[in-house]
Each structure stands twice: as structure tokens, then as C-alpha cells.
């Protein structure tokens, strides 16, 4: 990832679809291209949702981690 760093964090824990991706969309518009946004969520469908969101928006899902109940996604603004 080189010099890219997380400049914005979205705490979407407790929020259900569609709010985590809506909040991600709001956050990504506020950062510069190349910068990273980190999303915290406990939405069990979030992996599919985040992947689909990134595919459609053209932003890059650079990292994801988590267990069965809590997930962290790092998305790079790409355009």
C-alpha cells in the first residue's frame, strides 16, 4: 500500500443495510484520491455488500478482516 494511510474511520457498528455502505460513500467523498477509509461494522452481510459497493463505485477494497461478528474494511478512494 506504500504511503497510503487511513485518513477516515466510519463506525457503522449497530447499523444495518443500507447504512454501512451509505456512510462509506459519504466518507469516501470527503477524502482525496488514493487515501483510505476504514469501516467498522457488525453487519453479517457486509463482505458481499462492501465487495459489490467497491465493484460498482470503482473504489478499491484493499483489506478486510474480522470474525463472525465484527468486521473491518479498508477502502481506497480510486477515482
Amino acid at each position: 500500500m506504500g504511503s497510503a494511510e487511513v485518513v477516515s474511520q466510519v463506525d457503522a457498528r449497530g447499523l444495518v443495510c443500507p447504512m454501512p455502505t451509505i456512510r462509506l460513500g459519504q466518507a469516501i467523498r470527503k477524502v482525496e484520491i488514493g487515501q483510505l477509509v476504514e469501516v467498522w461494522t457488525d453487519d453479517p452481510g457486509s463482505k458481499e455488500n462492501m465487495t459489490a459497493w467497491c465493484k460498482n463505485t470503482g473504489h478499491e477494497l484493499v483489506e478486510h478482516s474480522g470474525d463472525d461478528t465484527a468486521f473491518v474494511y479498508v477502502v481506497k478512494r480510486s477515482r
Binding site: T21, G25, N56, T57
Partner: peptide
């Protein structure tokens, strides 16, 4: 709202 957040 989801579609719009995906740029649709």
C-alpha cells in the same frame, strides 16, 4: 439509496 451510494 444503496444504488445511489454506488454511483448509480
Amino acid at each position: 439509496t444503496t444504488a445511489a451510494s454506488m454511483g448509480w
